[in-house]
Structures are given as C-alpha cells and as structure tokens.
C-alpha cells in the first residue's frame, strides 16, 4: 500500500510517498520518496501547483498515480488540493511526523517562517494540546530572517554567528518592524554582530518557549520547521526550555508531508 502526503505551503509544495512493507509478517513503513516544488509567480493557481508537484514526484519515484491508495493534504493551502481524499491541519501533521521520526519525544516544537508553536502529543503522535502565536512575525522565523537582513548576514551565517557569542542582550522591541530599528541602533553603537544575532535568537526562543510551557514539557523535545537549520536558535531554545537535548529529525522540511502520509495510511487501515 502506498499513500501520499502533500504539504501545501505559501511558497512551496512538498510531497511524500509512504509505502507499507511486509517484513517477516509485520508491517513496516518505508518513506523517503519525496518531491519538492517551489511555487513560482506563474503558478498562481495553487491547485495547478499541487497537481504539478504531485506529477513530478510520481515521475521521480517511478510510481503510477493509480498505485496511490489515499492522499492527505496539509499546510496553509490544504483545502486547495482538490485531488486529496482528506486534509489535516499543520499542527496534526507536524506532530504525527515528528513523533514518527523521534518516538521518544512527546513535546513537539514547530518553528517555521510564519509561526511558532508548542505541541504536546501522545505516543501515537496525536495532538493532545497545542499553543501557538500565529500571524505575528515576532514569534517565528520571519523575525530572525528580517534581522539577519538588517545585519547583512545569510540566515546560516546569522545562526553560526550567534553561537560565537556568550553575551545576553535583551531586545526591547516585540514587533519585527520595531526590532529592525533596534538592531540598527545596536549596529551603530558598535555592538558585535554575533551578540546581536544571539539577542535576536534568544528573543525568538523565549517567545516560543512561553508557548511550549503553556502545553507543558513532557518527555523529550523534538524541533521541526525551518529553524531546525539554525544551530544558534537550537542552542537558544535549549537554554530557554532548560533541556539538555532537542531532537532534530532528518529532512525537517518534509515532516508535515510525512505526517499527512502517515495519517493517510492510518485512514486506510481504519
């Protein structure tokens, strides 16, 4: 049985195929056949973009469309994937995928470009509780992105720079727009870039941490979303949460699509 998960974001479409294999009679899951499609301005119709991404991924995996038994969509544009059999929220898909990858974790921290949230999941990866700060760039990756531009560093350099600092500078501004002026004045007062980078990432981490504390930290912590790639943020998050280890799954950007594919398989089994 092969199922598919489609993560329809605002800028990218990600597809994951999941195959159930019979190994010594016990079903096992194999995944990894995946495709990523960047949306271009000409793909303004999201349904078209989803279709194109799906076709490309099928071709890449050498799977025929009729071999797929069930498709579940997720992401902000999940309702626009017309050929999906069902859809699931990003929160549900993210938690399912994260717990599948890191079975020892029950606390899922999801920090993408546009939102940050804390999710408490059970052992099956089902969402028990979650708290988020959507639609405000201050508690999300966009805050760090914007400040890295002000510092004229790539997001990667920005994260690495932060690791070289041991200073703690509080950021007063909560809003990304106001924080930019604050960063500019820090630059003018000759504050080292690494200290500013750390101040910014500490600020995002403390906001995300407040959301995680609302659901409570249980067992181990796994981080998903774009900020997984930012080692400085991971460090700041560890300190803010007061934990020794934060799991970072492989292929973090496909976790939600994987979760959707897993939920598709659950639905098929039920």
């Amino acid at each position: 049985m092969i199922t598919a998960g489609i993560d329809m974001g605002s800028r990218t479409v990600k597809v994951v195929f999941l195959e159930e294999l019979k190994v010594d009679g016990a079903p096992q899951l194999r995944w990894g056949v995946k495709g990523k499609h960047i949306m271009f301005p000409e793909d303004l119709d999201p349904d078209q973009a989803a279709d194109k991404a799906f076709e490309d991924a099928l071709k890449g995996a050498g799977i025929a469309r009729d071999q797929i038994t069930r498709v579940v969509s997720t992401g902000s544009g999940r309702k626009q994937v017309k050929f999906a059999n069902a859809d699931v929220t990003e929160v549900g898909a993210g938690a399912r995928g994260a717990v599948f990858m890191c079975p020892t974790a029950k606390t899922v921290v999801d920090v993408g470009a546009e939102e940050g949230r804390g999710v408490k999941a059970n052992a099956e990866g089902k969402v028990v509780d979650f708290a988020g700060n959507e639609k405000c760039a201050a508690g999300a990756g966009a805050f760090a992105e914007s400040m890295s531009r002000a510092l004229q560093l790539s997001l990667k350099e920005f994260g690495e720079a932060s690791l070289r600092s041991d200073k703690t500078i509080p950021m007063n501004a909560q809003c990304t727009v106001f924080a930019e002026s604050e960063v500019v004045s820090l630059i003018h007062s000759a504050t080292p870039k690494e200290d500013i980078a750390k101040a910014v990432l500490d600020a995002v981490a403390s906001r995300v941490c407040a959301m995680v504390r609302r659901v409570g930290i249980e067992d181990e912590v796994v981080l998903i979303g774009g900020m997984v790639h930012n080692p400085g943020f991971v460090q700041s998050l560890k300190v803010a949460l007061g934990v020794d280890k934060v799991h970072l799954p492989d292929m973090p950007e496909y976790i939600s699509a994987l979760g959707a594919a897993l939920i598709a398989a659950d639905g098929e089994a039920a």
Partner: peptide
Amino acid sequence: DEEPEAVSSTCVVF
C-alpha cells in the same frame, strides 16, 4: 478602478 479587498495580514511583515 474598483476598491480592492484589504490586505489580509495584520502583521506588517506579512
């Protein structure tokens, strides 16, 4: 030519 819908994001960045 016609009054458009408001930009949906509240956040200035978005």
